[in-house]
Nucleic acid binder design. Structure first.
Length: 276
DNA sequence: AACGATCCCTGTTGGC
DNA sequence: TGCCAACAGGGATCGT
């Protein structure tokens, strides 16, 4: 599932291919992918002939600067992945958007479930979009424990749900939220406002190590149909997951069977012995 | 305001 | 064995 480590891995692979290059041709095979713009033609017309100046990221959103004060916003959704290919190469199934460069290189957005999207915004549109409502980036701009404690104070929602709220911290998804909570030794169903100061500090201290570990291993590929690296390789962090997807299997720390519960409509995995 | 539920979408999985 | 319902999940939206 593309979360911060997968998105950052993707961004790092695409940056040298796209930065400074002119988009000669933009093809959209599924209109749903451009639903954040009024019309598909807006995406195509605004990008065609313009150069991508810089490729950045905020949480799970890839945000590129494009000539003409435009922003290219890409979200991989849950099944999206980018491919770097040549124009003559066969198209993979569900290739929904193609960015063609002048030298024949193509960046292809493959997304079977179409939860991902491509948008091109003006600065004004950007300010009205959800991207501007994102909380600080979980890796590059992680809030202090103090700030985190003040945001969590009084909140009754389970900490797992709050970690998934992109307005609080941007970048954690279902997998890494579970992993962060395991490293923090905090049960996912604890009310956010009930965490002690010590627990908030432990939580804060766990976020970046977990994300960096994911990043080091190219992210998490649960199966080869969902997220893959732009070169086609699978992310290998899946082998190092402590709890996510490991229901009824032994906790790697203590051997207690991992439990699976549903919190805020998402499956949550935790060790009932390590996490209190 | 905060929080939970529902929907979107399609490949995969589990049950009968 | 074969079919179909259930499931997975990020984010938008809606109801309470």
């Amino acid at each position: 599932m593309p979360e911060l480590p997968e998105v950052e891995t993707t961004r790092r692979a695409l940056a040298p291919v796209l930065e400074g290059k002119r988009l000669a041709r933009v093809h959209v095979a599924r209109d749903r992918m451009t639903r954040r713009n009024e019309r598909t033609a807006d995406v195509i017309d605004r990008l065609t002939g313009r150069r991508v100046l810089e490729l950045g990221r905020h949480g799970k959103f890839i945000v590129g600067r494009v000539e003409g004060d435009l922003r290219l916003v890409v979200h991989l959704g849950m099944s999206g992945r980018m491919q770097i290919a040549q124009a003559a190469d066969d198209l993979a199934p569900h290739t929904n958007v193609v960015f063609g460069l002048e030298d024949g290189t193509e960046v292809r957005f493959v997304d079977p479930r179409t939860f991902g999207f491509v948008a091109v915004f003006t600065i004004e549109e950007m300010a009205r979009s959800t991207v501007s409502g994102l909380g600080p980036d979980a890796l590059d701009d992680l809030p202090t424990s103090k700030h985190l404690a003040s945001v969590l104070a009084g909140r009754l929602a389970p900490i797992k749900a709050l970690l998934l709220d992109q307005r609080i911290i941007a970048g954690l998804g279902n997998i890494y939220a579970d992993e962060v909570l395991h490293r923090s030794r905090i049960r996912p169903d604890r009310a956010g406002g009930d965490l002690t100061w010590t627990e908030v500090k432990r939580l804060r201290a766990s976020v970046r190590p977990v994300l960096r570990a994911g990043l080091r291993h190219g992210g998490t590929s649960l199966d080869d149909l969902a997220y893959l690296l732009p070169d086609g390789r699978a992310g290998e962090y899946v082998d190092r997951l402590q709890v996510y997807g490991r229901a009824d299997r032994p906790c790697k720390t203590c051997g207690t069977p991992v439990e699976r519960v549903v919190i805020a409509g998402r499956s949550s995995h935790y060790c009932p012995h390590c996490q209190r």
